[in-house]
């Protein structure tokens, strides 16, 4: 899995890890979600580059509710936000693709569905960039087809593929 270094345009090998509570990002470091609190509601993951595994580039919390997988929280590291100073691109794409992949492990009729609530101003961004579908208001979802597409694009992409 690769994210894109916006400084030199190079793909950077990355991985998504289950993180223990003590190693989760903190609000005092500029993160918005309280990740330590989220860890008690679901499974938390952090995306890091292989060269700097101590730096979280983005974080994800997944939770199963009523037999379905939900993206309880998704956040980019403060240094990966904005137009001017953003360090890495494709962090959100990789984390969402990972969440979609996890949705295939759900047993039952909701297998392959990933639900979440978007921030109002981001609904258009999600739909346009990742092909999400809107079900009700701010509640969005990925189905198996759009999930598979994202998994191919973000998780199986080779270093030599164009990012």
């Amino acid at each position: 899995m690769y994210i894109l270094d916006l400084i030199n345009g190079e793909p950077v090998s990355s991985e998504i890890l289950v993180m223990d509570v003590k190693s989760l990002p903190l609000i005092k470091d500029g993160w918005q979600f309280n990740w330590r609190k989220l860890a008690s509601t679901g499974q938390t993951y952090v995306l890091t580059t292989r060269n700097t595994p101590e730096i979280a580039e983005g974080a994800l919390c997944l939770r199963i509710e009523s037999g379905m997988l939900f993206m309880e929280a998704l956040e980019l590291a403060p240094h990966n936000v904005g137009q001017k100073n953003k360090r890495y691109d494709h962090v959100a794409g990789c984390l969402i693709a990972y969440a979609c992949r996890e949705s295939f492990k759900t047993e039952g009729e909701y297998r392959g569905f990933l639900g979440f609530v978007s921030k109002t101003e981001l609904i258009h961004w999600y739909v346009e960039k990742y092909g999400e579908k809107v079900a009700r208001g701010h509640r969005l979802y990925f189905d198996a087809e759009s999930g598979e597409h994202l998994i191919k694009e973000y998780l199986y992409r080779k270093k030599t593929d164009q990012l």
Partner: peptide
Amino acid sequence: KAEEPKEGALTRGMDYGTPG
């Protein structure tokens, strides 16, 4: 073109158990 996020948090909490 859809505007890129201006903040790191990209989701809101789901209202589990509500009629919605």
